[in-house]
Design a protein around this nucleic acid. Structure first.
Lengths: 212, 212
DNA sequence: CTTCACATGTGAATCTTTTAACAATTTAAT
DNA sequence: ATTAAATTGTTAAAAGATTCACATGTGAAG
């Protein structure tokens, strides 16, 4: 139990959470680093090392208790908290995210959308209002938003991020294919879907390259 | 110029490509590792090290030629090739991907969609046919698909991936929140959007943690 | 033509991450 | 009650990635 969670471990945490939840749903109550490693394509050694840094869950000769470990990782990830999200850009991606049911189940609730296309300005069937983006400064600060989902075109992304910061937003989940410049007190995580497609393209072009 | 491209470098390649294209669009013809590093939040040293592994582009006292470097990275990524994609699962995510215009521009063309919901079985306005997923084995092998976009619910993902493999598909761009088991001769890259949201949640819960 | 500032390529040093190894503990079986 | 098999926590070693430092080459200015 060493306490410090390195960035390499943080990147794997959502994967642990996902697999443990799935195991729990299937009624599995206990799992060894060996077995979990096979599922996740990690070495048992790495799994023990990872879990050990927030320590004390395993029992020798037995393994790890699935439910308890999942809950603990969920807490480390902050999944016990609730988040109110605003979606900026009500195009296909923005809508896909706002309707994706598992986010809401995990405490990420979409409470409003903003777009520049007036055709979309309407109360949606699910009760999420869509507002003109020109009203961002007027409406957003009242909404108690903790996460903004940025799903605008690349060309508008930086300017919009700046406006969001000015409205008090301190966390952006960015779907625009752009690396945003941002103050240190605003967190930004990028989805950058096309990057993953490019990596697939790379692997197809170099089937020989050993992945390490 | 050492030739071997490590996985850490491959993961950064799409970012280089993105930034270089943007620079090129803005008419920038030359850039130093210093300046590029500021844009990308990488050290100049790392950039020189990265670019050096497929070598020989920079000129001392001058920097790197933007167009030439971009083109070369594009080739390494395999972006000179064309790909025909089939989208499996015509829900919001599947549709968002198939309509996203920049993929087509980069040579990734959606040629068909499959879904289990008969309400969707129709020729779309953009000419992309939507077929019942039960006809996968009948239709897909004829279509000369090189990439399948998997956008079905988590519960169906593994079974569907197995069927795709049986149909001859050897590359999957996976949007289902699942780590697929797959033969070594099939490439899979995951988007796992919710993982990035979980990482955002982690960072919000631990604003102190140094990101390294 | 000389000089100066700039910026790369590269080898070595440092830091991080992963893997290996094993003593210690638990479970289950006989 | 003993023993055998399983499996962790942890330390140490190995591998990998990043940063540093500097010699070397380039371009521009005087």
């Amino acid at each position: 139990m060493n306490g410090y969670v390195s960035d390499a471990v943080v990147r794997r945490l959502p994967g642990y959470y996902r697999h443990l939840r799935e195991l729990e749903e299937n009624g599995v109550v206990q799992i060894s680093s060996q077995e979990l490693g096979e599922r996740m394509s990690l070495t048992p050694s790495q799994i023990r090392q990872d879990i050990n840094c927030f320590g004390g869950f395993g029992r020798q000769g037995y393994g790890y208790p699935v439910h308890e470990l999942k809950e603990h990782i969920g807490e480390i990830l902050g999944l016990n908290r609730k988040h109110r999200m605003a979606i900026i850009g009500a195009g296909r991606i923005g809508n896909a995210v706002s309707r994706y049911p598992s986010f809401r189940r995990e405490g990420f609730e979409t409470v409003a959308m903003f777009d520049s296309d007036p055709a979309l300005m309407t109360e949606e069937d699910d009760g999420i209002g869509i507002y003109d983006i020109s009203r961002l400064e007027e409406l957003l600060p009242e909404m108690d938003i903790s996460i903004a989902v940025l799903a605008v075109p690349a060309t508008a992304a930086q300017k919009t991020a700046d406006r969001l910061y000015a409205c008090g937003v301190r966390a952006i989940w960015n779907f625009a294919p752009v690396d945003l410049q941002h103050p240190a007190d605003m967190e930004v995580v990028n989805v950058h879907m096309s990057d993953t497609l490019h990596i697939l393209s790379y692997r197809m072009a170099h089937p020989d390259a050993d992945r390490k």
